[in-house]
Nucleic acid binder design. Structure first.
Lengths: 258, 258
DNA sequence: AGCGTTGTTCCATATAATGGAACTTCGTTT
DNA sequence: AAACGAAGTTCCATTATATGGAACAACGCT
């Protein structure tokens, strides 16, 4: 695709942040050198600047990790997000109806970023999923969102994907995905049938702002062993209804042009 | 603090992000111009670059908001944070013992950033507090953390504070704060007696890595109407014990030099 | 203790940011 | 609806900053 327009100095600095994020654990200077080919002097200065800004911190063993200020930015981003705010009561209602985990996600390029989550038992990590980015092609929310894109846009994205078989059921070809998206577009909802994680399936429906500047989806997720496919199918009308209400609310609360 | 060393281009870009974050709502181009005095061309390019990087997004009405990628970075920062991970079971235990809200925070300059939270009823917004930055001088965790800093460092920070009386009980002078921090340092724990928010008080204890590269605290917070000062005082040993265990675990799990 | 590796500093050069000004677009008023 | 003013965008010569090779320092391993 056309990534022609460069973001210059900022891009290099963010590339460093991104490398640290992708590592998923504290990384050493040399690891970063291997991940992004910046020369020592440059990398060192980038890290130094990022540290001064609080976006990167060091551990005593000279390993680098993401800084706490990122949490502060994310907190602000989350708290001020109107779409999330509008969707929230509907997520709660959907959760009340199903007693299963409900997600709100937004399409960002080829990925879905989860904006909110309501889950039954706060069992494990409540917030761990917020902000998590997952591939759009193997998640319910992602497929639902892709399905409502203008055809040209959708094809461009589908054709720039590189597929990975997370499970035996993961869709791994552009043709198969396009076909699936066509079906989803027609019926207005998507299933994720253990395509991202074995034992987990979900039903999802797309949401969007009137002008499609915001495209995402909501889903009800459950473990296959506990919730049957039939049960999931019975929830579809609820998911769709919630999605429609969110769309309607966005139109009302953000104005007709939103 | 000595912020003398500039972060150049990156700093200007982050200043834009920060301005959007501080606004707490979508802002227009002209608002940003007023907040940070960047000339139109420069501001426009900064915004444009930040958008290409996914750190800023636009609403249809040309207002700017924080981008979703910030959530992804924060998610990674949170998930990979060893201190938080180590503290977590102790936060849960403290919560089990008190049945009130328990916080973990880290000192960042003059502020406290909340890294984790365990609360009784997941009533309102579970994650809303994670990543939130609050002034160190009027929060239990903040005062506890400040109290264990080397004296020089502490004085520098205290003297660069600008105080704001959030409530009638807020400490608003460097002298009073230093005195309070001395008391806290001696006894090893802090109270926040409605200093940040009327009707909310808490008991806190400092935590830190052996080399003080990480300095923070934990607290039990409760509404004054429901939990008396006496009750809070009875919890102090529990808070201190949890803090000691966290300190010990950090020493063990991150190695003696951590 | 010595050596190889990892991380840091320096500086002439190349590159990207700067910001004034001209231009376009949008929203508002008459 | 047209005209006006304000908001936002583009352009480009100038200036400031990033670049990265190389020399240097610190660390950790045997």
């Amino acid at each position: 695709m056309d990534e022609s327009a460069s973001t210059g100095t900022l891009g290099k600095a963010i590339a460093v942040l991104d490398a640290i994020a992708r590592a998923g654990q504290p990384v050493r200077f040399r690891d970063l050198r291997n991940m992004i080919g910046q020369p020592p002097g440059t990398l060192h200065r980038n890290l130094s600047n990022l540290m001064k800004e609080g976006l990167v911190r060091t551990n005593p063993d000279n390993s680098y990790a993401l800084g706490y200020r990122l949490l502060t930015f994310a907190s602000a981003a989350w708290a001020s997000n109107r779409f999330r705010e509008i969707a929230e009561p509907h997520l709660r209602e959907l959760h009340r109806q199903t007693d299963e985990t409900v997600h709100l996600g937004v399409l960002e390029g080829l990925e879905v970023v989860y904006l909110d989550k309501v889950e039954s038992r706060q069992a494990v990590r409540m917030h761990s999923q917020i902000g998590k980015a997952s591939p759009a092609y193997c998640t319910g929310v992602g497929k639902a969102a892709l399905s409502i894109l203008p055809h040209v846009d959708m094809r461009i994205r589908v054709n720039s994907l590189s597929f990975h078989a997370f499970t035996p059921k993961t869709i791994v070809s552009a043709q198969a995905l396009e076909e699936e998206l066509g079906i989803i577009a027609d019926r207005g909802f998507a299933f994720d049938d253990e395509e991202h994680e074995t034992g987990i399936h979900c039903a999802a429906a797309p949401i969007h702002s009137p002008d499609k500047s915001f495209v995402g989806g909501i889903s009800v997720t459950a473990p296959s062993y506990r919730v049957s496919r039939q049960q999931l199918e019975q929830w579809v009308p609820l998911v769709i209804e919630a999605a429609h209400e969110i769309n309607s609310d966005i139109g009302i609360k953000l104005g007709p042009r939103a």
